[in-house]
Amino acid sequence: MTQAQHNNFIEVTNVWQQYADQVVLERLNLSISEGEFCTLVGASGCGKSTFLRLLLGQERPSKGQILLAGKPLAGEPDASRGVVFQRYSVFAHLSVLDNVAIGLELVQSPLLGRLFGNAKREAREQAAELLTKVGLGHALDKYPSQLSGGMQQRLAIAQALIMKPRVLLLDEPFGALDPGIRKDMHTLLLELWNEIKLTVFMVTHDLAEGFSLGTRLLVFDKPRIDPHAPNAFGARITYDIPLNPQRRANRAVFDELPAHVAASLQPAV
């Protein structure tokens, strides 16, 4: 990968998003390098989640374009971008283990979406390994409804990570959790981010969370407001703040290591 591509892993150029006559986002320009942890904050209705949906491919921008690794972003969600929502992120009809294994099954079996025999066992082993890592090793056979909110979000994260996505999108993933549980989730998320080469976008209402987790804080706000037509102007990114330079630097050094050395190291948390 050349340096230029490395710096512009995700390139947002002059993106507008509007529904009918309601402008949600206007003139968004952004360049994100691979491995950044971007936290998106702003008032409700300021287009943070809309921006996330654009990155996800759930919506297409009204104007402008988004490039992912130099190519226009696919117009629909796919396996290159993982996602965790605040609610409804996991499949209620599958056990914890199958919730994660289903990703491997869907990719390997485009006809039935299901694996059998050895392939199935391997997928489940792989899923169990990841689940143990996120602290769900004891609950493999449970259904999601038997898990607490925090456990369900751990499951949702594991589910997304089994696909080895290059981008992970989090839409207020911890918004419904207790403060204590939230702390644990932050630790887990940073661990995983350190370990896997992952670009993260996380929408949050919790400013402290935004500051402590991210390597880059993006503040969405409406710079112009017309009181007679509140929908006429959209939100922009009004502040773009680099954060936690230490973590950023660690990450960069780690990235510079030759692959065989990096692979043999247990990444520090």
């Binding site: 993982g82 609610r87 409804y88 289903i102 990703g103 869907l106 485009p110």
Partner: peptide
């Protein structure tokens, strides 16, 4: 959210219906 999630897990329309909608 569930339909989106399934797509990010690599489902096509058919397997999405088979493994998420049908159950």
């Amino acid at each position: 959210e569930l339909l989106i999630k399934a797509q990010t897990l690599g489902a096509n329309t058919w397997t999405l219906m088979l493994r998420v909608v049908l159950p």
